[in-house]
Design a binder for these strands. Sequence first.
DNA 1: CTTAGTACTC
Length: 722
Amino acid sequence: MVMRPISIYRRSFCFRCNSTVAHSNHEPVTQKARNFMETTTTSTAIFQCNSQISKLARNGNLQEAEAIFRKMSHRSIVSWNAMISAYAENGKISKAWQMFDEMPVRATSSYNAMITAMIKNKCDLGKSYEFFCSIPEKNAVSYASMITGFVRAGVFDKAECLYAEIPVKFRDPVASNVLLSGYLRSGKWNEAVRVFEGMAVKEVVSFSSMVDGYCKMGRLVDARGLFDRIHERNVITWTAMIDGYFKAGFFEDGFDLFLRMRREGDVEVNANTLAVMFKACRDFGRYREGSQIHGLVSRMPLEFDLFLGNSLISMYSKLGYMGEAKAVFGVMKNKDTVSWNSLITGLVQREQISEAYELFEKMPDKDMVSWTDMIKGFSGKGEISKCVELFRMMPEKDDITWTAMISAFVSNGYYEEALYWFHKMLRKEVYPNSYTFSSVLSATASLAALIEGLQIHARVVKTNIANDLSVQNSLVSMYSKCGNTNDAYKVFSCISEPNIVTYNTMISGFSYNGFGKEALKLFSILESTGKEPNGVTFLALLSACVHVGYVDLGWKYFKSMKFSYGIELGPDHYACMVDLLGRSGLLDEAYNLISSMPCEPHSGVWGSLLGASKTYLRVDLAEFAAEKLIELEPDSATPYVVLSQLYSLVGKNRDGDRIRNIKKSKRIKKDPASSWIILKGEVHNFLAGDESHLNLEEITFTLQMIEKEMEMISLGHGSSFQ
DNA sequence: CTTAGTACTC
């Protein structure tokens, strides 16, 4: 690994002084600056001080800017203006006002600095406009600033009015650019085009905005057409076009344009361009290109900033190159929360939890992302109590955090807890998002808890995320797993843009509820849509064949997977096929299939064989399968139970007793049947035979309420499959 | 005075 030098500069977020304006390092007052202060009698010295103040302010170093200003023996209007802007840039509007009031003589530029300060700091629009009106001699900058204020606040009619009022001599492209970019940002395309077409003078900024606008609309060809037609392009034009390609999913085009940008050499690649490149390399999994560009950066006379460093860490982290990610992290002088989080995320994804946790503990300013990421990390390791501990320690929590906690429960099989925490979340008045609903619906699905599922569906309908595809898919899955195929299909047929997951969910829903033929029919519909089936699709299909008993069709699908669709066969596909053959009595064929497996058979495969062997009284194969099963899952009761049942079926009672004794001696127990109900937001668990702690009247009442709620649920008007 | 752009929930 080559360590590359990284220098840091301007514009970023500084976590050390909490300034939103970027700066690199908190350097002490330099000797050079001190020299300026002592010789401010000449106009060149004043000029140098002024530009030093502006530079320091841009870097967020307000203290030193103040120091220079204070020690200047002579000041010009520009010195005062610079201080107004300095305060404005750093969010100190009252200090800016103080400067404005104190300054002895004001020029239009002073008023402009002040109106800009007000707009930047989102001061009251009315007050800003009042101030604007008070400017004695407005110029083009005054108008452009005020229009910016209106546009940022979304008051386009006021912006247009003022725009129309600009005296002819002050008309320049900047005000039009403000309007144009404002309309583009808020998606008012027609208005934007009107402004663009009406512009007397169009220049780089106008074209850049339009190129970006086309890209954001997905009109790549139009964007490129305009890009090629214009005579002048700057870094922003290039970057917008390149990123447009990336965002539309075209890596090569974006990358080629980047190369051309460097080759043509009339504009310099800057930190933003590179951040875009690194993000793209990350998203498209292009480590080689990413590290090439990284190498290039160190040789360019180009400085580095937080955005750039962070995009590099993120790229290396996501692509699994933790060494490189750590190297960049180590070299960066200024790190912010994002830098830490990106590295931690990478470690979490590589399941290097202890290292991630070490960093997490060392991290100075943890935000919700950091905590949430750690929860995700421990969830992946199955350490659910650690997740809860972290969750409880968090200073603040939002919907994302709650969702992470809930899905931690779900992915570790704690479905009741997931539901319990969902209700807790609602009680805390945190609004669930689409991920929350997906998670919690999958919990109810796993519990086959139709009533809870219905309640959540009702909640989904009341929220505006009922059109979210992943939520809709979860609903289909929930109804299917609760055995309610009809409602599953109703939801399915209301989905406007189903994806492959949607189809898979519905096909397997049909399948395990016994509607094998419907499942197969849906597959042919899927094929007619041109969507590509995947491994999950075939799993659903094969199990449909199991239900209908179509051995030949099953074989056909099984064989066509690899040959016609190029999909790898996994152990689950084999398990399904073994099941299909076994249930049809083709036990030797099933056994041969297992022997021919390229991957290691898992418990599902042997379980299928065992079940079929019991049905067809094949003691030899049953014993073999049971043995394998016990090897793989020593704590499972299933092989013992099935085998002893088979022994008694064929009259080998002595063998049955022997098996039962082994089971007893190994202390293997069947899980006791349990159930649960949610009452007033609390999950009540009870085991079979336990009638102690619940008030039956209350339960009955609650059930009646729930039934009423069920009637209110609108499922849309999709056709029923029956 | 105007234009592009990094991290975290499934």
